[in-house]
Structure formats: structure tokens, C-alpha cells
Simulated assay, not measured.
Amino acid sequence: MKKIIAFGASSSKDSINKQLATYASGQFENASVEVLDLNDYEMPIFSTDKETATGIPALATDFYAKLGTADLLVISFAEHNGAYSTAFKNIFDWTSRIHAKTFQEKQTLILATSPGPRGGSSVLEIAKNRFPFQGAVIKGSFSLPSFNENFDAKNGIINTDLNNQLLEIINSIEL
């Protein structure tokens, strides 16, 4: 059975991006899913001075190792001021110090959502352009606009057209 590692790139305890990543990863057949919580990887703010003084935190090594166990990564990005959340960026910065190919040539589905009509499209574009340099093999991307209008905690994406768009992407990914 193939393994999916999924997470919302946010530290919010009620992260809508974690909900979207969980939903999307659950749509794959014959795969086990592990959903990570970025709060389990909280580390000091990255700086080369801290790295020199104390080394790379064990949590960064743990996160990197966890990514290495996946056949597919499903990441949904929160958009903070048009870019990654600080929580994700910090984990990303520390983990990239372990290996420049942070995502270890893993197949990756990138997602984003927000309460607004753009659905985190700015951060999704940043990830789409940056992640291949960091070792992600992007297999698809999807933005869910207006999360509160298009997503239900019990039923997932309730807008049929948007749900079909995501399912089309999911069905195109071979695990």
C-alpha cells in the first residue's frame, strides 16, 4: 500500500488548509494517509547564527525523515500576506539545511485555500515555481476559493465543479 503524507502549511489549530489536505489525501484509493500537524515541529526562528551555535534542531530532522517515508506529499498552503505562513517557512528553512532537495524527489500535490475568492492563489504560484528546485515532483495543483462557501467539514468540497476539478487531478496521479 502506498503512503501519503499530508499537511496544511499553517499552525492554526483549526486550519482550513489542513482540512483541505486531509480531504484531498483521503480521495486516493489504496493508500494510507498520515496527516501531520506543523505545531508538532515548532522550532526557533531559523538563522545561520542559531544553526552555528546549536546545530539543526532534531524536529527538522524528524520532519525531513517523515517526508522521506511518503510516496506522495499533499500540501495545502495557507497564504499570509501573499506568501507562506511563518510556521511553514521556518520548518522549510530548517529542513532545507539538511538537504537542498528537501522534498526528496517525491510526487507532490500542492493545494491552497482561503476564505476569499482567490483561494490562496499567490502562495500556490510561489510553491509551484519554487518546489521543483527543492526536490518536489509537482503532479498537480489546485486552489479552492471561498473555503467557507465551498467546503463542509463532513462532506468535503460541496461545489460539484470544484470537487470534480480536484478529483480529475487526483485521478491523474499514479501511486
Results as ranks from 00 to 15, higher is better:
residue 99 H to E: 14
residue 92 F to G: 07
residue 121 S to F: 00
residue 103 F to E: 03
residue 166 L to Y: 08
residue 134 Q to N: 13
residue 147 F to T: 06
residue 122 S to I: 02
residue 122 S to T: 13
residue 10 S to G: 10
residue 135 G to C: 07
residue 43 M to Q: 08
residue 95 T to N: 04
residue 55 G to F: 09
residue 160 T to D: 15
residue 80 H to C: 04
residue 84 Y to L: 02
residue 160 T to C: 00
residue 133 F to K: 11
residue 60 A to R: 07
residue 135 G to D: 06
residue 161 D to M: 06
residue 106 K to R: 13
residue 111 L to C: 08
residue 17 N to V: 12
residue 72 L to D: 11
residue 159 N to M: 06
residue 101 K to C: 01
residue 133 F to E: 02
residue 3 K to S: 05
residue 44 P to R: 10
residue 89 K to V: 03
residue 46 F to I: 05
residue 82 G to V: 02
residue 139 K to P: 00
residue 32 S to G: 11
residue 161 D to H: 10
residue 108 T to F: 04
residue 143 S to G: 12
residue 3 K to Q: 14
residue 41 Y to R: 04
residue 36 L to V: 09
residue 77 F to E: 06
residue 35 V to L: 11
residue 37 D to V: 03
residue 11 S to T: 13
residue 113 T to Q: 12
residue 87 A to V: 04
residue 114 S to H: 09
residue 46 F to L: 04
residue 127 A to H: 10
residue 166 L to Q: 03
residue 148 N to R: 08
residue 164 N to G: 01
residue 56 I to S: 07
residue 52 T to Y: 15
residue 84 Y to F: 15
residue 59 L to N: 01
residue 49 D to Q: 13
residue 38 L to I: 07
residue 155 N to D: 13
residue 29 E to G: 00
residue 151 F to Q: 09
residue 136 A to L: 01
residue 155 N to G: 00
residue 133 F to C: 00
residue 134 Q to V: 05
residue 79 E to W: 02
residue 82 G to M: 05
residue 89 K to I: 09
residue 17 N to R: 11
residue 150 N to W: 04
residue 67 L to K: 02
residue 17 N to A: 11
residue 114 S to K: 04
residue 141 S to F: 11
residue 16 I to M: 14
residue 7 F to D: 03
residue 46 F to C: 07
residue 91 I to S: 08
residue 87 A to K: 03
residue 168 E to W: 00
residue 28 F to Y: 09
residue 104 Q to G: 13
residue 86 T to V: 03
residue 158 I to P: 07
residue 61 T to A: 07
residue 40 D to K: 07
residue 43 M to S: 06
residue 40 D to V: 06
residue 98 I to E: 10
residue 122 S to L: 12
residue 141 S to H: 12
residue 3 K to M: 00
residue 90 N to F: 07
residue 19 Q to R: 14
residue 149 E to R: 10
residue 41 Y to L: 10
residue 59 L to Q: 13
residue 16 I to D: 02
residue 19 Q to P: 01
residue 54 T to M: 06
residue 108 T to E: 06
residue 166 L to C: 09
residue 128 K to N: 15
residue 109 L to A: 02
residue 146 S to I: 01
residue 86 T to E: 08
residue 35 V to K: 11
residue 6 A to T: 01
residue 77 F to Y: 15
residue 46 F to S: 05
residue 108 T to L: 06
residue 10 S to R: 04
residue 163 N to G: 02
residue 102 T to S: 14
residue 98 I to K: 02
residue 20 L to F: 06
residue 29 E to H: 06
residue 89 K to G: 10
residue 119 G to V: 08
residue 10 S to V: 04
residue 17 N to T: 12
residue 54 T to Q: 13
residue 147 F to Y: 15
residue 163 N to A: 15
residue 22 T to P: 06
residue 125 E to V: 00
residue 81 N to T: 08
residue 118 R to F: 14
residue 167 L to M: 15
residue 161 D to K: 14
